[in-house]
Amino acid sequence: MSLYFAEQMVNGLILGSMYAIVAIGFTMIYGILRLINFAHGDIVMIGAFATLGLVIARLPFPIIILVVLLVGVFMGIVIERVAFRPIRGAPQVTGFIASLAISILLQNTGILIFTAQPRNFFFPDYLQRIVNIGQITVRVLDITIIVTSLVLMILMVILVRTTRIGMAMRATAENLNVARLMGIKIDRIIMLAFAIGSGLAAIAGMMWGGKYGQIDPLLGFVPGLKAFIAAVIGGVGSITGAMLGGYILGFAEILFVGLLPPSFSPYRDAFVFGLLIIILLILPTGLLGRKEEERA
């Protein structure tokens, strides 16, 4: 039982890492624009397909990571520029609907190019190799996912907490107009938030493909929504909150499936969304979020 439990914990850690990485972008964009970006999850899908293409092209793995990251960054910038910038200042709901439209657009472009059929996803053999840590068996890939996520998250915290640009991001998230009065070019900050967030999401797509072994154009929707839930748990707008929320959600989901009788497993998503609704109602600011001032 304890071995089983330990293996479940590793699974939770992997799932949580991926949620956390996606949630960071979600929460950054929300923090600055108060925009729930539904299309964020579809960047995960784009990242997964980009990875598959590059693996098939037999590029060296470090280059694959770099290119996938850049693909995500590029997509984020394009989406912000083309769709979100023109409607900036419109009511929140407009942005939300626009992001839904972009999500549908990306998914169906994916279907158009790759068809809706799931494709097998594979990584080079050395990543598939199995290693034993104590009595637990894991793949090299699993460890890579956990470590890469951790590194990315530490880099994010350093960026946001200690650098000049991170300081500007925090200031912009708190008060957009006053940030402009400080001479901060908020267009650049917003673009940067989309770029970083989408780059991370694309990397998460790479992990997602590796973890589940199959990808299809609609795969981004669920991680996108779950990342949103993770962000809500942590407190939308808080980057450390998003990471924490990602891990909490990952573990909660794995525990729900792994520890309850199997007849409960199909209700996994219902559980997750039920959890979301409950958290929204009893703890709307999440674990680490700030209370938002109400505007008339």
Binding site: A83, P86, I87, A90, T94, I97, A98, A101, I102, I104, L105, Q107, N108, T109, G110, I111, L112, T115, A116
Partner: peptide, 21 residues
């Protein structure tokens, strides 16, 4: 070309949000 109608509708919606909010 499956998906093309959703793409057209999504683009149409974005255009409306941007130009005729």
């Amino acid at each position: 070309a499956y998906g093309i109608s959703e793409i057209i509708i999504a683009i149409g919606l974005l255009a409306i949000l941007i130009f005729r909010p």
